[in-house]
Nucleic acid binder design. Structure first.
Lengths: 235, 235
DNA sequence: CGGGATCCGTTACGATACTG
DNA sequence: CAGTATCGTAACGGATCCCG
């Protein structure tokens, strides 16, 4: 059982880690913030996870009440965050903000899908969006579709397509990372790595500005204290 | 080497977990937020950690630039957070906020010291303090001394004594947890589990109110979605 | 084919004993 | 006090197989 290695302390930080501190667990939650997912969606997004581990983690998350199993479209079983599980959003965002300070390690592995970006990007957008803004954006990153919904200061970013978007925004993953690391100017990114279209030119510009300021949020955070990993690892 | 089991993904969340995701690492950082600590301070606060693990984690934290070794009083070597390491504060606070939603597991282990409370309490106070407030408080919890310093909207809570405090506040750990879980009313806590003194009565009352609202912060967070662990674990 | 369960070699953890 | 060394055990990683 996975419960042998628990801290069992009063401290709320330790209590949290007893639920989400195991390897892979926070990354599973991260991907689930993109919306309900099938076992194989998670498996491909979490490239490298063993199937037994994914099963075990999902079971633990279900008994802890962060995740539930549902019946999705075509009778497929999907895993989804519960209301309690959704509460990991700000936590994951803080993790992203902190992790952005580190340069990625040399041999980077690519995940099988980009559900991984949903929390980070969604929570970041929510931090810079104005309460009076409202729009539906069809976001396409490396060919993968996301639905971005903003209103009343809330932002939802889920995997999937949008019926009738106000703005269509198409870009690629790696340039986004490059900007948030400060290796590419925001202007260059917006000019060269984004294709967007909208009926309303004002809304198009507004969203472009917003998207730029999100990347800038990470860039400025990363810049003030930064740590490069010395690769003395014998590998 | 500890670097074999790294995710090596572009995602900033994964990058963060590659630094602080190992078992014990976040708890070590938590305790270091109470100020520089000797090896044995950490060992007793992290009750149950093996000495070799503590060594290994500290080394990893040092090569990642989150922690540094210093020479403290009497030539003792102490470990301290770097500026980069300090940046884990909000992250740890979010973890605490999330963990507060779970009921502590039955056989709770008590740590050898209470440095563990510093980040959680300090960051929470910073969230409720007014920018115009300024005070130095000698906080004593279960007989352990902490120095609380608030000004310009910033709050510092470190282990140690205070020379000339505005307020002296004495309390106990478990009642604090009870309140933040909603099992004890704030009023009862303040009336029965707090001893405080101050030269200025207004400041005394102001701090009492502030302290109460911190516990209330956790209580309200915990209340709206709460999960009790069913102990079906075969243990 | 999606959703796992089973098996096994390897790595990390936990406990304790021992040393500068 | 501040670690290093050793060793049994639990968890992980990869692969293979199974079932509806």
């Amino acid at each position: 059982m996975a419960s042998a290695r628990r801290y069992r302390l009063l401290c709320p930080i330790a209590r949290a880690l007893d639920r989400v501190g195991d390897r892979w667990t926070l990354l599973i939650l991260r991907d689930l913030h993109a919306g309900p997912a099938r076992f194989s969606d998670l498996q491909s997004g979490l490239k490298g996870i063993a199937t037994n581990l994914l099963t075990e983690r999902l079971n633990q998350l279900m008994t802890d009440g962060l995740v539930e199993k549902r019946t999705g479209a075509f009778g497929a079983t999907v895993y989804a965050l519960t209301a309690l599980g959704e509460r990991t959003r700000t936590l994951l965002f803080e993790l992203a903000l902190f992790g952005g300070r580190f340069v990625p390690d040399a041999p980077v592995r690519r995940p099988g899908n980009l559900r991984t970006i949903a929390v980070t990007l969604g929570a970041a957008l929510e931090r810079v969006v104005q309460p009076n803004m409202a729009f539906r954006v069809a976001l396409k990153v490396d060919g993968e579709d996301f639905a971005l919904d903003a209103k009343n200061g809330k932002v939802e970013l889920q995997a999937g397509t949008v019926d009738d978007p106000d703005v269509t925004f198409e870009t690629a993953y790696e340039p986004m990372i490059a900007v948030s690391e400060g290796e590419m100017p925001v202007e260059e990114f917006l000019a060269e790595h984004v294709a967007l279209s909208a009926t309303d030119a004002g809304q198009q510009h507004a969203f472009m500005t917003l998207f730029g300021s999100v990347l800038d949020l990470f860039r400025t955070a990363a810049q003030d204290e930064r740590r490069r990993d010395d690769s003395t690892a014998s590998d």
